[in-house]
Design a binder for these strands. Structure first.
Length: 432
DNA sequence: TCTGGGGTCCTAGGACCC
DNA sequence: TCTGGGGTCCTAGGACCC
């Protein structure tokens, strides 16, 4: 249907609109057209909001408690994060796009890049619209699409498409130099992918205010002011020279982390150890799901000094260890981690968060059996597999290690979570 | 008085992303 | 009272080696 011609670099970014909110709305159709927000873990910040919530002036990433009044006054629907649901819906969206388009790079839970090089430039717009409509029909999740010669420019296009859904029908193609210029003039410097708070302040100081201004800067200047090669790539991408390639979808992760704020501050070593053991359990599960093993283990704790002002000024300290060999066994990680926790712990300190990071990750299928491995090792791997199966099919934590505790007073709050409609039989969506 | 040069590996920390 | 979690990439600087 859509001719491929070779040459001509073109990339698209497909981005789900207000993704977490869209997932929640899918199972509560009455919320269509209504303001909705989704909160981060611990019900701390607002991490997703619909256009209607945005129109009420509710800020992205704003602390929930600061907006609580307006939220209640306007009857905004509020949800805690439900990662089971979002993860599964994300998979459906990506799978749909993989069927429609070659070379999909999943960039985050709600975004992916597509390589559209070779599609007839005349047909790019129609093709993007087709992708959008099909994705929405098959999954129920609305998306916006930006198309341009580079990733940075496609993000610029996507943002403009999303801002003016009525005018663009959610799709914008920046194929010509003129279209790119117009789009960059309309894009403030802090809205460019790769420009965060620190760089934005610096750029504004130099009177570089929009994307077009930044595009005019020399590579030497960018190298000096914007973090070396990162800045050079950014300026080149703005000019339409691709520098950020499509990533190999088979690449394994370089680190796996599990970190959490506590539901309430922790003072006891026992509690700290339980929390760390629990996070290790999660992280090791993620590791095994990717059929990998890790050789370094890092533990960190975060304290917030209460006196005198309760100002939010966290400071962290960490300890790490390199294991004799890469592993994916939960109890091995726990064994090495506990002394690290003891080493970090100081009594009388108010801990607000902890985390573990597994690094030096290598492929190492924990399910496949190696002839040369000692039988005890084999049994441990089988044990992991059994535990994973039980926990996946029954309930997380159905089987757990004693080190992760049973009281768990430190567990995070999640008071407003919806059901895991698509991944748990007991929580299936019901039609009455 | 006057202290090489270049490479690699490691870690900490900063900046960014969603 | 109350501010998330999980990643990536890059640079600087120290240790070590020849």
């Amino acid at each position: 249907m859509y001719a491929r011609q070779g040459r001509k670099n073109m990339k698209a970014i497909v981005d789900c609109n207000s993704f977490y909110c869209a997932c929640e709305r899918l199972f509560k159709p009455a919320l269509h057209g209504k303001p909705v927000v989704v909160l981060s873990n611990n019900d701390g910040c607002i991490v997703s909001r619909t256009d209607e919530a945005k129109a009420l002036g509710i800020q992205m990433a704003g602390p929930y408690y600061q907006h609580r009044k307006e939220i209640e006054a306007h009857g905004v629907a509020v949800f805690s994060s439900n990662y089971h649901l979002y993860g599964d819906m994300s998979w459906r969206v990506m799978e749909t796009l993989r069927r429609l388009s070659p070379s999909v790079e999943v960039y985050s839970v709600d975004e992916c890049f597509l390589d559209l090089s070779g599609i007839d430039p005349q047909q790019l717009h129609a093709y993007a619209l087709y992708l959008k409509q099909t994705t929405e029909e098959w999954t129920g999740i609305p998306v916006s699409i930006g198309v341009a010669p580079t990733k940075v420019l496609s993000k610029v296009a996507n943002r403009l498409a999303k801002k003016d859904k009525a005018g663009t029908r959610g799709v914008m193609v920046l194929a010509t130099a003129e279209a790119q210029r117009e789009a960059l003039l309309k894009t403030a410097v802090e809205d460019i992918w790769g420009v965060g708070g620190a760089y934005a302040r610096k750029l504004r100081f130099f009177n570089i205010n929009n994307g077009w201004d930044l595009r005019q800067m020399s590579e030497d200047w960018a190298r000096k002011q914007l973090g070396g090669v990162v800045g050079v790539r950014l300026v080149r991408e703005l000019r339409g020279e691709p520098c950020i390639d499509m990533k190999d979808p088979l690449q394994t992760k370089k680190m796996i982390a599990t970190t959490r704020m506590f539901g309430k501050p922790v003072f006891e070593l026992r509690e700290l150890k339980e929390a760390v053991a629990t996070y290790i359990t999660r992280a090791a599960e993620k590791l095994r799901r990717q059929h990998c093993a890790a050789r370094t283990l890092q533990v960190f704790v975060v304290v917030n000094d209460p006196a005198p002002s309760y100002e939010y000024k966290p400071s962290s300290s960490s300890a790490y260890i390199t294991l004799p060999s890469a592993t994916a066994l939960t109890h091995t990680f726990i064994e090495y981690a506990m002394p690290l926790v003891e080493q970090l712990y100081r009594s009388g300190i108010r801990y607000i968060k902890a985390g573990v990071i597994l690094g030096d990750i290598v492929p190492g299928d924990s399910v496949q059996f190696n002839l040369f491995e000692p039988p005890a090792r084999l049994q441990e791997k089988q044990l992991m597999q059994v535990i994973d199966n039980v926990n996946f099919s029954m309930r997380n934590d159905m089987v757990k290690f004693a080190a992760s505790g049973t009281r768990r007073d430190w567990k995070m709050r999640q008071e407003l979570r919806s059901k895991r409609f698509t991944t748990r039989w007991e929580e299936l969506f019901e039609v009455h």
